[in-house]
């Protein structure tokens, strides 16, 4: 079952390995930075949730 899923993920990765849009490294880095920043904000939210529940 797990092997099957790993195979499926590999197949999908291969299928979309040539993205239609070509991004410069700067754009890629900006997108990654935005994602990481948003995840940090969500972690702060989870911390607040913990404070309130406690």
């Amino acid at each position: 079952m797990v092997q099957e899923w790993i195979g499926k993920v590999k197949e999908i990765n291969h299928k979309y390995s040539q993205p239609r849009l070509h991004m410069t490294p700067l754009v890629k880095a900006s997108l990654l930075a935005l994602r990481i920043y948003l995840i940090i904000l969500v972690m702060i939210l989870v911390y607040k949730f913990y404070l309130v529940v406690r």
């Binding site: 299928k15 979309y16 993205p19 239609r20 991004m23 994602r35």
Partner: peptide
């Protein structure tokens, strides 16, 4: 998203 940006951003 998968088609335009590739699997990394797609899975994300």
């Amino acid at each position: 998203i998968f088609d335009a940006f590739g699997p990394f951003w797609g899975w994300f």
